[in-house]
Design a protein around this nucleic acid. Structure first.
Lengths: 223, 223
DNA sequence: AATATGATACCAACCAGTCTGTATGTCAAA
DNA sequence: TTTGACATACAGACTGGTTGGTATCATATT
């Protein structure tokens, strides 16, 4: 126990983490462009030389910040699907519970790094846009898997496409955080999530779609 | 007819419009912070002296740009409710049709000034956040009115709160544009809108909610 | 003449990124 | 175990360019 890392002056791993953490904190509040490299260095307690030793550019750090947020989210959601044997519908319920919990943190605005960075940068910083897209893909495929499993178990006859529903829920979640932040009303987010969960539960108790003039359209991905 | 404004060199109204238009075009692409006053002046073909004659600051112009976008949107949606006698459910269908149309414009990214500005600035520029909130309020109350009218006419017994559903749809719309832009897949937006319309139609053909364990929660606005 | 517009030059602060130098840790040879 | 060469990690002054905003002056419209 004499060798328990006695606070070395140099700690490249920690320095990197501090920079990424500072970037997440500042950019989550101010956005990307309004956050200067100097701001980040000051927040992290690190100098500029160090910054550019670890990251080749501000954009590179931006990407790393989005990645960090993705890992953070994945860890949060993991609670929902950690139990192997759990009924997928209950997993979905937990999934919604986690999101609702995220709106209930004190003194923390309910917002998403991926949504913020993509909204601000998707048309000018392709590398960051791609990283954001990767994170959305991840969320959606996890969600679609739960939906597909729940459908197989509870309503194999139901007429919905798990992936389309997953994109729908992802969009609703992102938009809810945006609206909640704009209106300063996290209760809207919770209300939206409850309506969406009820809808999903409805989809999964449907044995045969009763009368749907409107059909679920085939998706048409372009380029 | 001799006095039909023979192209005066000075035209404060037009100058103002050119500046607002330039700001909308540039900020819609690059965001607020990344768009400089010089950029805007160049795009508008106007000099800086003129800029600061018409707007006291960049932030003031930002607000004006959000207002402009709101008016632009209102004009678009007006198509849905211009016919006095139209069945409110058909108004809603038109409403969705207008949004779908908005995703189908060629060479134009489907995005929203209000969502962009609010996402980037809501925590640092209160005045702009408030203007964005005003625009969302407008959209939502128009939408809620249609829903309430449709409910009164088609399903007075139905168990849903028009305002909550309107916020839900607003969130879905905003989030869909965000996700569609991130993924470069406008088809996701359309798919989401179709699912949402089907859901709304379902709500309105509901005579008595069949079995709803999950109830529509009372909203709890804070501060 | 008075005022509303617009043009131009200019400013101090700030920007991302570079450069040069120094401190620290590592590892192999002695 | 000591030494010393070397790569990594960090410090901070500096640079060329840009930022939002101002001061001043010119001209058009009333």
């Amino acid at each position: 126990m004499s060798k328990s890392t006695p606070k070395p002056r140099r700690n490249p791993v920690e320095t990197r983490e501090r920079l990424v953490g500072a970037a997440v904190r500042l950019m989550l509040r101010q956005g990307y462009a309004a956050t200067s490299v100097d701001d980040i260095c000051a927040e992290a307690g690190v100098t500029k030389g160090s910054f550019f030793h670890h990251f080749e550019s501000k954009e590179t750090l931006g990407r790393a910040a989005v990645e960090w947020w993705g890992a953070f989210g994945t860890a949060l959601y993991a609670e929902a699907w950690k139990d192997e044997g759990l009924d997928p519908l209950d997993q979905i319920r937990r999934f919604f519970g986690i999101m609702i919990g995220f709106t209930e943190r004190e003194d923390e605005v309910c917002t998403c790094m991926v949504g913020m960075m993509s909204q601000e940068l998707s048309q000018t910083h392709p590398a960051i846009r791609e990283e954001c897209a990767r994170q959305l893909d991840l969320w959606t495929s996890n969600c679609a898997n739960m939906l597909a499993a729940a459908k197989a178990r509870h309503a194999p006859e139901a007429d919905f496409d798990p992936e389309a529903v997953a994109w729908y829920l992802n969009s609703l979640w992102q938009g809810s955080m945006l609206v909640g932040k704009t209106e300063n009303r996290p209760d809207i987010i919770r209300s939206n999530l409850r309506l969406a969960l009820a809808w999903v539960e409805g989809l999964l108790t449907q044995t045969r779609n009763p009368k749907s003039e409107i059909r679920n359209p085939k998706s048409e991905p372009e380029t």
